[in-house]
């Protein structure tokens, strides 16, 4: 009787026997774990994308300045993409250890492929006459880049950033290999202990996170490019 009474008000839908996929009790009872994993997931994703951006800007500028290097830069960054994410982390571990740094570097390198292309295309999409008018107004190389070319490249770069961010959110889960996978840790744990509620909750949160970050970037783009709204 006591057993029955316990299961009545105790957590039941994620118990060993029922093991349901959708279970709100799980979310309530495991809230600290879920919050911690989600925070880690967001932190790793953002750090990786920023790292990728920081790397890809100089690379894209270099590729633009020296056309001979362009195919090399694009080739190497595309080649990185064929290295499976599962392989990239172990490759980095001897150098960076079992840390979040390993995941951030790995995912940043993946984001590089998309970002370098996006930045190059964005800069290339700046109309030549705009560039020439700026020169005529006495803009130097640096000021031209910062004040004219980059702002005009924002839409294309942002499109690349969206792709990179959404894929990074998904790829972060693989970081569970080195125990820094955010929600991926919950998924890995769920596989090992056949914990369905945890699996599904973590998977759904991943998708929600991707959508949310995507929306944030779209909003940021609207703020950064006020002229696109008035022009229409």
């Amino acid at each position: 009787m006591t057993l029955l009474a316990q299961s009545d008000d105790g957590p039941s839908c994620y118990g060993r026997l029922t093991n349901e996929w959708v279970c709100w009790d799980y979310v309530v009872d495991y809230r600290p774990e879920i919050v911690e994993a989600t925070t880690q997931h967001v932190a790793i994703t953002i750090a990786s994308v920023l790292f990728g951006l920081a790397l890809s800007f100089p690379l894209a500028l270099l590729a633009r300045r020296l056309p001979r290097l362009e195919s090399t830069v694009l080739g190497v960054s595309t080649g990185l993409y064929t290295v499976p994410s599962l392989a990239l982390f172990p490759l980095l571990v001897p150098f960076t250890g079992l840390s979040a740094t390993t995941v951030v570097i790995g995912l940043g390198l993946y984001a590089l492929t998309v970002l370098v292309r996006a930045i190059l295309e964005g800069l290339r999409a700046v109309p030549e006459d705009v560039r020439e008018s700026a020169r005529g107004l006495g803009y130097g190389d640096g000021r031209l880049l910062l004040r004219v070319e980059l702002p005009l490249a924002v839409p294309v770069v942002m499109a690349g950033l969206r792709v990179a961010t959404v894929s990074t959110v998904a790829l972060t889960t693989v970081g569970s290999l080195v125990a820094y996978g955010g929600l991926g840790n919950l998924i890995a744990e769920g596989v090992q202990s056949n914990f369905r509620a945890q699996l599904l909750t973590a998977a759904v949160l991943c998708v929600v996170l991707a959508v949310l970050l995507d929306v944030v970037i779209v909003l940021a783009q609207r703020v950064l490019t006020p002229w696109t709204r008035t022009a229409g």
């Binding site: 959110v169 889960t173 998924i187 769920g190 596989v191 914990f195 699996l199 998977a203």
Partner: peptide, 14 residues
């Protein structure tokens, strides 16, 4: 792109 393959795989395996 937003659905992690790992998550999908984990769900199928479970």
């Amino acid at each position: 792109r937003a659905v992690p393959t790992f998550a999908l795989l984990a769900i199928f395996v479970a």
